[in-house]
């Protein structure tokens, strides 16, 4: 499975939302599923999916679909040349 698919699946699994709801417009706090507690579940799911560790500082940075991609990219997850 490609990393971008793993990334989208993590949202679906953690936030219990439909696949077509996962996209660039997804922002923390703007849907009832992605609230502060859902965020903790999403972080755990991302950590397991990509074998990374996200601390509190990075967790605050991860506040949208897009910023999550950038953050994981910085941690060595390749979404382009895989």
């Amino acid at each position: 499975m490609k990393n971008i698919e793993k990334y989208k699946n993590a949202f679906v699994e953690a936030l219990e939302i439909e696949e077509d709801e996962v996209g660039e417009g997804l922002v923390l706090g703007e849907t009832s599923e992605w609230d502060s507690l859902g965020h903790m579940i999403l972080i755990s799911t991302m950590e397991e999916a990509f074998d990374v560790s996200l601390d509190a500082e990075w967790m605050s940075e991860f506040d949208s679909y897009q910023s999550g991609l950038k953050l994981l990219d910085r941690l060595g997850v390749d979404f382009v040349n895989e």
């Binding site: 953690a14 507690l37 903790m40 579940i41 972080i43 755990s44 950590e47 397991e48 509190a56 967790m59």
Partner: peptide
């Protein structure tokens, strides 16, 4: 809180 939440996937 954050260390306690590590690996937790249920509300």
């Amino acid at each position: 809180f954050v260390p306690l939440c590590k690996g937790k996937k249920k509300r």
